[in-house]
Design a protein around this nucleic acid. Structure first.
Length: 126
DNA sequence: ACAATGACATAAG
DNA sequence: GCTTATGCCATTG
């Protein structure tokens, strides 16, 4: 069984470009419905992503910017992962923000993985 | 074991 | 919609 952080990272890597999900939704998928804060903390420890696309094809990159809060807004106050950076990364993928800074769950929300897929992620062996 | 920490969620005013 | 207050929980010192 992978550590909780590792489980979070694996799940976030499955979020497709141009879609978003929430901290709470990720926690629920992993079977810890109330661990949203812990999810946020896990993402906080990631290295800031390179907006200039210098991701050199490494699959281990975690697209932390596709995770926002349950109201559809960017939630970070961290300077390494600034709200400006996150918004820019999302917009580069086609995600749109309304004039008040909200993302529409209807249009861009990620449905998540089917149960068996999640269980496979939680289990070990990459 | 205990207290502190953290990019949340939710309810209330 | 905004701000507070409270509950949450994995990780760390």
């Amino acid at each position: 069984m992978a550590g909780f952080f590792e489980q979070v990272y694996r799940l976030v890597r499955r979020v497709p470009p141009g879609r978003v999900t929430s901290y709470g939704a990720l926690a629920r998928m992993l079977g810890h419905p109330r661990a949203a804060r812990t999810v946020g903390w896990a993402l906080h420890m990631l290295p800031p992503s390179d907006p200039s696309g210098a991701r050199d094809g490494s699959e281990d990159e975690v697209p932390w910017w596709r995770v926002i809060n349950s109201r559809g807004r960017i939630s970070t106050s961290c300077i390494e992962h600034s709200a400006d950076l996150q918004r820019a990364l999302l917009e580069a993928e086609g995600v749109e923000f309304d004039e008040r800074g909200y993302v529409s769950w209807e249009r861009f929300g990620w449905e998540g993985l089917p149960g068996p897929e999640v269980e496979a992620l939680i289990r070990d062996d990459p």
